[in-house]
Design a protein around this nucleic acid. Sequence first.
DNA 1: TGCCATACGCACCAAAAGGAGAGTGTAAGA
DNA 2: TCTTACACTCTCCTTTTGGTGCGTATGGCA
Lengths: 138, 138
Amino acid sequence: MQAIRTAMAAMHQRSEAIPPVSPAVESLVRQVIAQVADKWTMLVLEALEEHGTLRFTEVGRIVGGISQKMLTKTLREMERDGLVVRTVHPVIPPHVDYTLTELGRELSAAFCGVWTWAETYYAEVSAARKAFREREEA
Amino acid sequence: MQAIRTAMAAMHQRSEAIPPVSPAVESLVRQVIAQVADKWTMLVLEALEEHGTLRFTEVGRIVGGISQKMLTKTLREMERDGLVVRTVHPVIPPHVDYTLTELGRELSAAFCGVWTWAETYYAEVSAARKAFREREEA
DNA sequence: TGCCATACGCACCAAAAGGAGAGTGTAAGA
DNA sequence: TCTTACACTCTCCTTTTGGTGCGTATGGCA
């Protein structure tokens, strides 16, 4: 068990990989990645990219299967990170709409490759899963 | 409250967006995206892309801050989805190594854009967060 | 003789994510 | 007058995520 403790301690040390960038930047980039590499964020990004400015319920309808709670949370975090602009029209009933910022549009473009990958290879992923299942059943 | 029930019911309907692709494909792509858009998956992908074949503990050390449990889980899911090959050398102490498949390398390339985005814009995200914090403190 | 190394699996627990449902405020339409 | 619309917020609850610590097999080294 001492062995494991040692291994774990080593794991929590700084990675010695990717020397060109500083550890501080590394850490920040990882933080940003972790926040942004989220299912709902990707879906909302897509919806806004495709449809331009949308209202709260419209985003929910287009994304599909998201609860109000998660929609609010996701949108707020995206606003906080500067990915969307939230515009409140002080009327009753309330009217709020969301638009991608330049930063958001850039991120959406960056994710484009992942969407394309998924569309291109989902059949292969399915096949790999099937093969894996059969292999472990045996 | 009936209003909310109606809105929620509408939200859970199928999205009418993106007509070019079939709903079945849409759903599969979303599933794949949801699995793959994961912090640890992205980090492990990066590590393997940069260093080629790696052993279990090496992956852990390079990724940094991941527990053995999550590392095992992430690696298994990636194997299941056909992103990595797991090779067991039946010796004692055990020796297992992991290599990206072509599929994995393609995905890594697709994520490259997101990494670049994060590296390019993390300062702007930080600034946006700071501004947001100050705005809501007021 | 006895300890170490590796890549896990398992059990237990805490924290976070996420869903369901109710409540809110008020102007305009039935 | 009663309901509806919208964009939430709040509470309660379940599920998932993730961490910690333990056990394991055994050839080789001290």
